[in-house]
């Protein structure tokens, strides 16, 4: 319990974690002109959102863009942090042609730079090319996105479920899947029946 009569001790400036985090984010930003020069037509839409560099790509451009930022000696984004996805179904401005956002986050270890790629996919055909040919570590991250959201990665070496059992039929992180499932958890035989 804090004593209300006593004022809270003022933290020294080194404990100003918010300011430090903001500086770290700004250090990670990439010069937009450099990206436009390297990516050309592939990166028409480059923004800085919440102090982070974001490139909006499409299904047609994402694979080539990742290849360039990985292989280019000046950019040198040699690490794939994560691949994940967002289901936009419950958004106010929802549109079936923008059902899923697939997000690739890449990081340059030598330059301390970070880029987020966002790719919108339609509800009826959620397909995107694999990043596993450029970043080997992408294979399992893509398996997880496939398992949870049902996004198919074209050219993936081994696109199987990674978390849910193989016989599972749904993609549970989709917003139209109920939180408590569709009865899969109650669907086992009792031990006496198996014996």
């Amino acid at each position: 319990m804090t004593d209300p009569a006593k004022p809270a001790p003022k933290l020294p400036p080194t404990h100003d974690s918010h300011g430090k985090a903001a500086r770290v984010l700004e250090e990670n930003n990439v010069d937009h002109e450099l990206l436009r020069r390297k990516l050309g037509e592939l990166a028409k839409d480059i923004r800085t959102e919440f102090k982070q560099t974001v490139i909006y790509t499409t299904r047609e451009t994402i694979a080539r863009a990742l290849e360039i930022v990985c292989r280019d000696p000046e950019l040198n984004f040699n690490m794939l942090c994560d691949i994940t996805a967002v289901d936009n179904l419950r958004r106010d401005d929802y549109d079936p042609s923008r059902r899923f956002t697939v997000i690739h986050i890449v990081y340059s270890i030598p330059n301390n730079k970070r880029i987020r790629f966002e790719t919108l996919l339609g509800e009826d055909d959620p397909r995107i090319p694999t990043a596993a040919k450029v970043y080997k570590g992408a294979a399992w991250a893509e398996r997880e996105v496939y398992d949870m959201f049902g996004v198919t990665f074209d050219g993936h070496p081994d696109l199987r479920r990674v978390l849910m059992p193989d016989y599972y039929e749904h993609h549970p992180l989709r917003k139209d899947y109920p939180l408590t499932g569709r009865g899969e958890r109650d669907n086992f035989a009792r031990a006496e029946e198996l014996a």
Binding site: P172, P178, L179, G181, R185, D186, F188, A189, R190
Partner: peptide
Amino acid sequence: FNTYPQIQGVDQFIP
């Protein structure tokens, strides 16, 4: 854990 993969009590399936 009242969620989709979680068994709601093992006594449903073993004594």
